[in-house]
Computed example of a mutant assay.
Amino acid sequence: MAEHNDTGRLAEELAAVWLSGQGYELMDANYRHGYAEIDLIMKHKGLLVFVEVKFRSGTGFGYAEEFVDSTKKKLLVKAADHYIFEKDWKKDIRFDIVGVYKDRTGTVNFRHFEDAFY
């Protein structure tokens, strides 16, 4: 696997642990449907939350939320629709983005964008 894939998986694991510490419950990770993949599916306060995780080693080229384009959003919604149908989920949902940032000293920080799109 390429190094960027390893970094992405590690960022997803870190985000899942961080979100769990914020009161979220992990339901599924790396859920695939067709060409779409949902990084994390969490439950929080009665909502099913679909989370796109983006890693950045700095902000010089922009913030994580800027890298979720309309095509990616459409794929996420399509996969989420399939998951909702598959699990027979009847309650509300939300789409979030979690940016995982590593600074020059190696410190990892998170930016959480709730209800980021849809």
Rank of each mutant, 00 (worst) to 15 (best):
S57L: 11
R56D: 06
I84G: 04
T105L: 14
L47Q: 05
I38G: 02
S20W: 04
M42W: 07
A80M: 09
L19M: 05
V100G: 04
E3M: 05
K78E: 14
V108I: 15
A2D: 10
G99D: 09
N5V: 14
E86F: 12
F85N: 11
T59Y: 12
A79K: 01
T107C: 11
G23M: 04
Q22G: 14
E66P: 00
D115N: 15
R56M: 04
V98P: 06
A16W: 00
Y101N: 10
K43F: 06
R104K: 15
K90G: 00
L48P: 01
T71W: 07
F117I: 11
E52T: 05
G62M: 09
G106L: 06
S70M: 12
I97P: 07
R56Q: 10
V100N: 03
T105A: 14
E12L: 03
E86M: 15
E13H: 06
T105W: 09
L14K: 13
Y24N: 00
I97A: 08
A116H: 09
A64E: 05
G60V: 13
E114C: 12
S70I: 12
V77H: 05
H82G: 02
R111T: 15
V68D: 00
A2Y: 09
K74I: 06
F61Y: 10
D115H: 12
G99F: 09
V98C: 08
K45S: 13
L47F: 13
A116L: 10
Y24S: 00
D96R: 03
I41P: 05
R9E: 11
K54G: 07
T59A: 10
T107H: 15
G58N: 12
F95M: 10
A79T: 04
I84H: 05
V51P: 10
H112C: 09
A2F: 10
H4V: 11
L19R: 00
F55Q: 06
T7M: 06
E3A: 07
L19E: 02
W89L: 05
K90H: 05
D88N: 14
T59G: 11
F95D: 07
A36G: 15
Y63N: 10
F85E: 12
H4G: 04
K102I: 13
I97N: 06
H44E: 10
G46M: 00
G46D: 03
K72H: 14
L75M: 15
Y63S: 10
Y63T: 07
G34Q: 03
G106T: 05
A11M: 02
A15N: 09
H33K: 07
H82E: 07
Y63I: 07
I97V: 14
G46V: 04
N5F: 05
A80L: 08
M27W: 02
H44Q: 12
K72S: 14
K91F: 02
E13K: 10
K54V: 13
K87F: 03
E86K: 15
K90Y: 00
V51T: 13
Y63L: 12
E13G: 04
E37L: 09
D92K: 11
